[in-house]
């Protein structure tokens, strides 16, 4: 149904990205670049549905982004145009499917989205398609000494809740460069599951931690995430690493300045004495000369 192809070493895939790729460009000419568009579906914590397309081509086993090309986004099997977005410097085009937009689901309750790059004289055209089912992910954080993340996920079919049993939800904490995995929960028959959260994780200076629970690259649901901010972390003390006076800081340790001052004032004081002696000799000599004159 869906062709999944992992492209070469793109190591950091953007946060919670679903990855369905279709290679295209059938009648390619010799010089023409054969690009790839990858389309990802994300339902974020605010229930916004976002389509995320990346246009790249492969050269010397490196993925090179194509900037400044229009990507058209479509919804439904009938390819109803949503909008068209120009790729940025990373080859990314993003569009939000507003809540007011009507989405036609097929008989299995699946939504289909697709994206298309039309191509030009030097670059081939290509398209990508994702099919997802809407899912509702509920997260509750409980406990004090033992902290528990409780998860429940279900989809709605004809107004009835259908538990997402057997599916895997990942729990993590976003950090500066990547997400720190905390654990994975396989949902039980009722679509629920829980996870004990470690109590020794550093948070920000107030102890706040961001906890993300998500379906990641789920073949049915795509990317669906829920974000919670909670005071479950250990407050970080940011003052520690800065030392004011040390060998390697801008300002020298006090003893150094004091020692140097004592040494220098001692030596230069004596120099001053010697120079004053010279002046005294000169004054004395002047006096003598004047006396001689008078005589």
């Amino acid at each position: 149904m869906i062709e999944i192809k992992k492209t070469l070493p793109i190591r950091i895939i953007l946060l919670s990205a679903l990855f369905f790729t279709t290679l295209c460009g059938l009648a390619q000419e010799k010089e023409k670049i054969t690009p790839t568009v990858t389309l990802q579906y994300l339902k974020n914590s605010e229930d916004q549905r976002i389509l995320h397309a990346v246009l790249t081509y492969s050269k010397d086993r490196m993925e090179i982004p194509l900037q400044g090309f229009g990507i058209s986004f479509f919804k439904g099997t009938g390819k109803e145009l949503v909008t068209s977005v120009v790729t940025d410097s990373k080859g990314i085009a993003t569009v939000e499917i507003g809540k007011d937009q009507k989405l036609a689901s097929d008989s299995k309750g699946m939504w289909t989205f697709s994206s298309e790059f039309k191509g030009n004289d030097t670059i081939d055209a290509c398209t990508a398609e994702v099919t997802v089912k809407d899912v509702i992910l509920e997260v509750s954080l409980t406990g004090d000494s033992i902290r528990t993340v409780t998860l429940r996920a279900f989809s709605l079919e004809n107004g009835k809740e259908v538990p997402a049993k057997g599916e895997v939800v990942k729990v993590g904490v976003p950090r500066m460069f990547s997400q720190l995995p905390i654990g994975e929960v396989t949902l039980d028959d009722s679509g629920s599951g829980s996870l004990e959260f470690p109590s020794d994780l550093p948070g920000d200076k107030d102890g706040n931690l961001t906890i993300i629970a998500k379906f990641e690259e789920n073949p049915t649901f795509g990317n669906v995430e829920k974000i919670n901010i909670v005071k479950w972390g250990i407050p970080s003390d940011y003052t520690k690493p800065t030392v004011h006076r040390a060998l390697w800081t801008k300002v020298a340790p006090r003893w150094m300045i004091i020692t140097l001052t004592i040494l220098l004032s001692g030596v230069w004081g004596h120099y001053l004495y010697a120079v004053i002696s010279l002046v005294r000799i000169r004054i004395d000599a002047r006096k003598k000369e004047k006396e001689e004159h008078r005589l």
Binding site: V267, H270, Y271, Y273, A274, S277, L278, R280, I281, R282, D284, A285, R286, K288, E289
Partner: peptide, 28 residues
């Protein structure tokens, strides 16, 4: 020569300065 004529006073001043400076020279 700073008008140095070798009077007793001048010699004394000079001698003192030289002794002090010779000690300083060693230290520095």
């Amino acid at each position: 020569s700073l008008g140095f004529t070798g009077t007793e006073k001048q010699l004394k001043i000079l001698g003192n300065a030289r002794t002090i400076m010779s000690a300083m020279i060693i230290a520095i």
